[in-house]
Amino acid sequence: MNAKVLAVIPARYASTRFPGKVLHPIAGKSMIARVYERVKQARGLTEVVVATDDERVASHVQALGARVLMTAPEHPSGTDRCFEALQKSGAHYDYVLNIQGDEPFIVPAQIEALLALIDDAHKLEIATLIKPIERLDELKDTGEVKVVLNTRGEALYFSRYPVPFVRDMPLEEAWKHYTFYKHVGLYLYRADILEAVCYLSPSMLERAESLEQLRWLEHGYRIHTAITSYDSVCVETPEDVQKVEQMLAQGLLK
């Protein structure tokens, strides 16, 4: 793979449920430090940067030896922040990887699975990760985004509800006979596609499900998927910090 890939970790300080969460320590190490260190371990990335709108985050990340790109505070999503980071990077990149700043236990192999989808002709537009759903409660949880695919492994639709709907049997039985996938929120964009989707207006399906990737599908962009066996571990509240610290102590996270 000869593509140049910029990995961007959007790291806002403001958070409705957990202000300053990217700087919060998890077992003695800040969340953003854990994310950055793990992303740096992935093979195939040209550069890794942290994109933030807050000087406190910038100072902390620079102390880690990471490159920081200051971005505007009003971005509606991490996608928009990634595009501004690309614009300010000062170099040419073929692809941009968007890594959530609140996933401190991201596995480098997850990143490498996405990078493996890049072809020499750079036909790949957008790619993301999916994981087979293994528990019924996950399938029923509207906080877990589900996805259905076509025969080429491209996403057909994302929903907070269980899809596909199995007409002839209850969900409690259907999930034993059909493969359901959930979305793992890691995105790889071709650079020109990232620019294009940032200029699109919110779409009907996006507003209905509150999922920005539906905007891209509605406008005809293709989202390829790679299957991962690793789950995402998001830290969105102070209670989540306690949970992951307990999991670390029990050896359930590394």
Score class of each variant (00 low, 15 high):
170 P>Q: 12
79 T>F: 04
195 E>A: 15
14 A>C: 01
20 G>Y: 10
28 G>D: 02
164 P>C: 08
170 P>H: 11
209 E>H: 11
232 S>D: 13
117 L>T: 03
91 A>F: 07
84 E>M: 09
88 K>V: 03
215 R>D: 10
174 A>D: 05
58 A>Q: 11
102 D>S: 05
173 E>R: 13
13 Y>L: 12
76 P>D: 06
129 L>P: 00
192 D>R: 14
64 L>C: 05
164 P>L: 09
146 K>F: 00
40 K>D: 03
108 P>K: 12
103 E>I: 14
139 L>A: 04
215 R>M: 14
109 A>F: 05
60 H>Q: 08
101 G>S: 07
76 P>R: 13
153 G>C: 06
7 A>P: 08
218 E>Y: 08
134 E>V: 13
90 G>A: 12
12 R>F: 08
173 E>G: 01
102 D>W: 09
10 P>C: 03
120 D>A: 15
150 N>W: 07
179 T>C: 06
108 P>F: 12
110 Q>I: 11
227 I>A: 04
102 D>I: 11
252 L>A: 11
11 A>S: 14
97 L>K: 07
21 K>D: 06
90 G>N: 12
51 A>Y: 12
82 C>T: 09
180 F>S: 00
121 A>F: 01
59 S>G: 14
101 G>L: 08
62 Q>I: 11
70 M>Q: 15
221 Y>S: 05
205 L>F: 09
112 E>P: 03
126 I>H: 07
166 V>T: 12
120 D>W: 07
135 R>Y: 13
178 Y>G: 00
80 D>P: 00
28 G>M: 04
249 A>P: 01
189 Y>W: 15
74 E>I: 05
22 V>E: 05
252 L>V: 01
113 A>K: 14
242 Q>Y: 10
204 M>A: 15
114 L>E: 03
154 E>L: 03
201 S>P: 04
119 D>R: 14
156 L>G: 02
171 L>T: 08
